[in-house]
């Protein structure tokens, strides 16, 4: 049944870390202001297909703003962001490249409370991608099974636990069949006992070759999943390194202090 679906396998488009020089997402000297407050300060970053980036840093350091600029929930003020070679400028080409490539999971889940789980999952595929309802339903069933709650398809968001709601939110993003997933503190709003089930789903997704940028404070998870750790402070990327170097020998004082604080408990 799976073969009949118009599903793009993440592994087919570059499962291993792409170090072939061509960045799938590239940020060049990106600045973002909220009034006088500078949320991003000269941020440059290249991400290849299949790479997993974990972004950490104190609150207000610009981590969320960074990924919100990548799918244009915020518009950057200076510099350049390109996905698959297309500059994000609000034009039709940029909208298409976002629609075809970028999925997002929010801290607060943001499921549509008035729609059933099925409708939450099929709305984007039907309205934005133009899929037939039957095809969208198959897609929804498939991804709901992948996040391990296929039996909840006819329920409403308020009938599910927080962990289940977040997994539905992940499935909703996957139903758009993105090539990159952005996670904005996906477990920060969850009760402790539900964090594991959500992280497990994200880890499996990472294992399947999905490109992802995850903003999180879950350092254990980061160590398993990340190809690159990014530490941000005051809107700048202060440090970027593979997890083993990042955790064992952080270069900057600020990063060291942050890691000590966050790993203490």
């Amino acid at each position: 049944m799976r073969d009949s679906l118009p599903v793009r396998s993440p592994t087919a488009t570059g499962g291993k870390s792409a170090v072939d020089g061509s960045a799938f997402i590239s940020l060049r000297s990106v600045d973002k202001f909220f009034g006088d407050f500078q949320a991003l300060d000269d941020v440059s970053l290249d991400i290849g297909l299949g790479q997993k980036i974990v972004v950490c840093g104190p609150s207000g350091s610009g981590k969320s703003t960074l990924i919100r600029c990548i799918n244009r929930l915020e518009t950057h003020d200076r510099g350049e962001i390109a996905i698959d070679g297309v500059k994000l400028d609000g034009g039709a080409a940029a909208r298409a490249v976002l629609r075809n490539n970028v999925g997002m999971v929010f801290q607060q889940f943001n499921l549509f409370p008035h729609l059933s789980i099925l409708d939450n999952l099929t709305l984007g595929p039907v309205r934005a991608r133009g899929l037939e309802l039957a095809a969208a339903r198959e897609l929804a069933e498939y991804y709901l099974a992948r996040v391990k709650i296929p039996e909840q398809i006819d329920k409403y968001p308020h009938q599910l636990s927080g962990g289940q709601q977040q997994r539905v939110a992940i499935a909703r993003a996957l139903c758009m069949e993105p090539r990159i997933m952005l996670f904005d503190e996906p477990t920060s709003a969850l009760d402790p006992e539900m964090i594991a089930e959500v992280l497990e789903v994200i880890e499996e997704l990472a294992g399947s070759g999905m490109t992802m940028i995850v903003v999180t404070h879950e350092m254990g998870f980061a160590g398993h999943v990340a190809d690159q750790m990014v530490f941000m402070d005051h809107g700048k990327i202060v440090e970027m390194a593979p997890p083993d170097t990042f955790f064992s020998t952080p270069e900057s004082e600020r990063c060291r202090t942050f890691l000590q604080q966050i790993l203490r408990h």
């Binding site: 929930l73 629609r99 999925g103 929010f106 709305l123 309205r127 934005a128 909703r172 993003a173 758009m176």
Partner: peptide, 8 residues
């Protein structure tokens, strides 16, 4: 934002 994220 969620609507935007699924490209509606």
């Amino acid at each position: 934002e969620a609507a935007h994220s699924i490209s509606l």
